[in-house]
Amino acid sequence: MTPLSGFLLVAALVFAIGLAGALTRRNAILVLIGIELMLNAANLNLIAFWRYGPHPAALTGMMFAIFSIAVAAAEAAVGLGLVIAIYRHARTTDLDQMNRMKG
């Protein structure tokens, strides 16, 4: 197993764990945590390909990962704000109980 495939396997495992969390948990905050794990796994892929790619001095993969981290931070802020707004409205963060389109 080459070093690159080792990192890619770890990224795939973290992605699958995050996806399982996002699909199976009932708490909305835990679903957001799963989404964050998936984003982090994608960043790990980008950095690994940057490190073992043909032109690391061009910084392309590194820049992509840095911008991805910034976008993920914005996503976390808005997502958790939405969770708090929904909690204030429905008094729960249980996604199985949020089954009404009309408040």
């Binding site: 495992l13 973290v14 764990i17 995050g18 399982a20 969390g21 948990r25 799963g34």
Partner: peptide, 8 residues
């Protein structure tokens, strides 16, 4: 991986 599994 252990941290991710525990979080889930």
């Amino acid at each position: 991986v252990a941290g991710g599994l525990a979080a889930v």
